[in-house]
Design a protein around this nucleic acid. Structure first.
Length: 243
DNA sequence: TCATTAACTGAGG
DNA sequence: CCTCAGTTAATGA
């Protein structure tokens, strides 16, 4: 049940953002986990739920979102393997947003009690998970700035660069492109623009020879201009351990 | 279902 | 007047 691959992305990610000792890594790998497969667009945890376990993304992409009364949905964050998007449910009893799969996913569920026990007995890991939560908050701040201040073309460019850098950190991409299973409608929901405008923005990126986005396949055509447009400073990802 | 495009509209600089 | 973006609607893959 504790197949190594389940934890690989998480251990790799934590080793990138923090200093993860061998014993701490082994303690993580000893956590009891239930692995389940999900299809795309399945709600994992719903706004208002009171979860008793946390969800580790093992394979696939998820997002967190909130829906307002008129049905409009804002995607708040995108999650890749090695992340625990609802870690907050460990300390906040009631979910204040939805967690949904964006692609077919393999997810690992870890009980709150097992996580609490591990964090109680290993203060170094408690500190490390705290740091992870703060990085999550830093990413939210960046997301707000992106959606609130940048023009739509930069917004999309910024998000695509961020996801690429995060995939790189866990060794899931290296070349000039990567796979991101998002429809234009979902990109629109993430960027706070209409689907039609998302389409226009993507066309602009393609026509300007900066980047192509085709059925979930991202291809970078001009790295320099993409960086310029994205206005991307990776500091907020905190991918190097604090000294 | 998802992507594409045109046409029109309005806000704001 | 120009750019950006929302809406509507038609059409294509």
């Amino acid at each position: 049940m504790n197949d190594d691959y389940v934890w690989d992305a998480l251990v790799r990610r934590l080793s990138t953002t923090s200093i993860l000792g061998r014993e701490d890594a082994e303690a993580i790998r000893r956590l009891p986990v239930t692995v389940r497969s999900f299809q795309a667009d399945q709600v994992i945890v719903r706004d208002g739920d009171r979860p008793t376990e946390c969800c580790l993304v093992i394979e696939g992409f998820c997002h967190r979102s909130k829906t307002i009364s008129d049905g409009g949905r804002q995607i708040l964050s995108i999650h890749i393997p090695g992340e625990i998007p609802d870690l907050q449910s460990l300390h906040l009893a009631v979910m204040d947003h939805d967690l949904t799969t964006m692609s077919d996913c393999r997810l690992g569920f870890i009980s709150h009690s097992a996580l609490r026990e591990m964090l109680r007995s290993r203060p170094s890991l408690a500190g490390l998970f705290w740091r992870d939560t703060l990085i999550d908050a830093a990413m939210f701040r960046d997301w707000i700035v992106n959606v609130g201040q940048r023009p739509a073309v930069s917004r999309v460019a910024h998000m695509l660069v961020e996801i690429r850098e995060r995939l790189r950190a866990i060794g899931r991409t290296s070349g000039p492109g990567y796979t991101l299973p998002m429809t234009q409608e979902r990109i629109a929901e993430a960027m706070g623009i209409s689907p039609v405008h998302a389409n226009r923005v993507i066309r602009t990126l393609r026509e300007d020879g900066i980047l192509d986005l085709n059925r979930g396949q991202v291809t970078v055509l001009d790295e320099r201009r993409l960086q310029d447009l994205a206005d991307f400073d990776p500091r907020y990802l905190h991918q190097s351990p604090a000294k």
